[in-house]
């Protein structure tokens, strides 16, 4: 039998996923990390990037924003601002968000506005990547 750990992904709105997983790939600010059962305890802030995990031999993909992961040897808890499955993503919304952010970045912005627009652009890219377009 394959070793598994318990994975839960929670957002303020709902419990997004809760169940066993064989492995998990998350992206922190310095790159992707693979997590298998029995991992060292750690807390990682997640970049705006897709997250993949394997359940019963099948990879599942989701888009997370504003997340961090608490890793224990037998349990991983991911807390995120938003979490979406590819089928939940509205492609037109993501495309228009991308366009809006790009247009904003063309104009002169304060530092805060610049960062906000960059993050908005990253979120749009994430959704489009996860959606596979």
């Amino acid at each position: 039998m394959t070793k598994t750990f318990l994975l839960s992904i929670t957002t303020p709105e709902k419990q997004f996923y809760n169940g066993p997983a064989e492995s998990l790939v998350i992206t922190s600010h310095d790159g992707e990390k693979g997590i298998w059962p029995g991992h060292l305890s750690m807390v990682v802030a997640l970049a705006i990037a897709p997250v993949r995990f394997k359940v019963a031999g099948q990879w599942k993909l989701a888009a997370l924003t504003g997340g961090f992961a608490r890793v224990r040897s037998d349990r991983v808890i991911i807390l995120a601002d938003t979490a979406e499955w590819p089928e939940e993503i509205e492609i037109n919304r993501a495309l228009s968000a991308e366009k809006r952010a790009e247009e904003r970045l063309q104009t002169r912005l304060s530092r805060v506005e610049y960062l906000r627009s960059r993050i908005a652009l990253e979120r749009a890219h994430l959704r489009l990547t996860v959606k596979g377009k």
Binding site: P12, S28, H29, S41, M42, V43, V44, A45, F68, L79
Partner: peptide, 23 residues
């Protein structure tokens, strides 16, 4: 319980405080 924080304990903490306040 030895826990590793990435990027650092302080950054994870500062990142989480607004989430906590949000709650």
């Amino acid at each position: 319980n030895i826990i590793k924080y990435e990027p650092s304990a302080r950054e994870v903490f500062d990142h989480l405080v607004p989430h906590y306040l949000n709650g």
